[in-house]
Design a binder for these strands. Structure first.
Lengths: 192, 192
DNA sequence: GTCTATACGACGATAGAC
DNA sequence: GTCTATCGTCGTATAGAC
């Protein structure tokens, strides 16, 4: 039986909207995508859609959150490892979604932007998680600790975001190469 | 004496528009900036402004090109070095302009976007220039050549773009730290 | 070539009825 | 919870003055 309670239908519709929005952005990109298109895909009028979200940017923030959550689950299913190849493949299957992420991250610099809270929480959390993983790998002697784990986490996250930007204009670029290069450098490092 | 020729005034106005647009984006960010505001700042009607550009995105592309050109001149004046600290400081004085760059880079993934040509030329040129610089430093023994110069250039450019994205939501982060960390790794490398 | 006036369609957002 | 109707603003297009 489905979940009970007064918000049952609303929550289902909410999820349907987010799924539809994700599909449209994946197919048509960030530009040229309107709320009316998303509404039509859900058999809803524009105000009908706006009943579920405060604004367009609020909706997009939820799309990003849902995507982050899905990525997190996938990563746990993989055993909690931070394999660059798999993470890049999962996160960048379509240019439209990469464009969405990058554009939102840029706009979220403004503290009044709905996604500001999302990103100012996301980055520290990711740094923490990745940093902890790296610390374990350092203690196990798998990689050099010549760069402190927290700082290496900042570096790797920047690398991941930045290589996506280059990939958007040149799809032939190998997004895993910089990670491999850097990791080999850390494996050849002084201490074991 | 000012430059002669039939397009003298037009070119001056063009430059004035680009300067005004840059100011407005720096002050008010990418969102909330309209062509009508830029036109008003130049004492122009909206179609008067559009006389100089094909579209909004065409104008923004020119803003980016002018900024790239200015950065290039500054770098030559500095003696052609690629000091990460100075480049980061010059390129990121205001969040609004970083936001403009990132948003345009994201949108330019679409080959039909006016800025597509700009970015698909800019990245290879930057890789080439930075790669050549790195090659010289490797041959001079200043840094390790364990990562080929061309690949190290891709990595460093990704690092520069990516760290800006983190900086947008957390202005307190040190944008030069990752470069220092990476460079120390390359200096401690095996061969001299 | 430079520029203004006017108008168009689409957008995100809101008010209020059912 | 969902609708119709409407608002103000956006980027864009055209006609035409100087």
């Amino acid at each position: 039986m489905a979940k009970r309670g007064p918000y049952e239908k609303g929550e289902a519709k909410r999820a349907e909207i987010l799924r539809a929005a994700l599909e449209i952005f994946a197919a048509e990109g960030y530009r040229g995508t309107s709320l009316r298109k998303v509404a039509a895909k859900c058999n809803l009028s524009l105000p009908g859609l706006m009943h579920y979200f405060d604004s367009k940017e609020d909706m997009l923030t939820r799309v990003l959150e849902a995507r982050d959550e899905a990525a997190r689950i996938k990563q746990i299913e993989r055993g909690g490892s931070f394999d660059a190849g798999e993470i890049m493949r999962d996160g960048t299957r379509t240019p439209g979604l990469v464009e969405l992420f990058v554009s939102m991250a840029a706009a979220a610099g403004d503290p009044s932007h709905p996604a500001h809270a999302h990103f100012s929480e996301r980055y520290p959390v990711m740094r923490e998680r990745l940093g902890e993983y790296l610390r374990h790998r350092m203690e196990a002697g798998a990689i050099s600790d010549s760069i402190p784990a927290e700082r290496l986490a900042v570096l790797l996250i920047a690398l991941a975001d930045g290589i996506q930007l280059q990939w958007l204009t040149d799809r032939s670029i190998d997004m895993t190469q910089p990670f491999n290069d850097l990791m080999r450098l850390l494996e050849n490092g002084s201490e074991g």
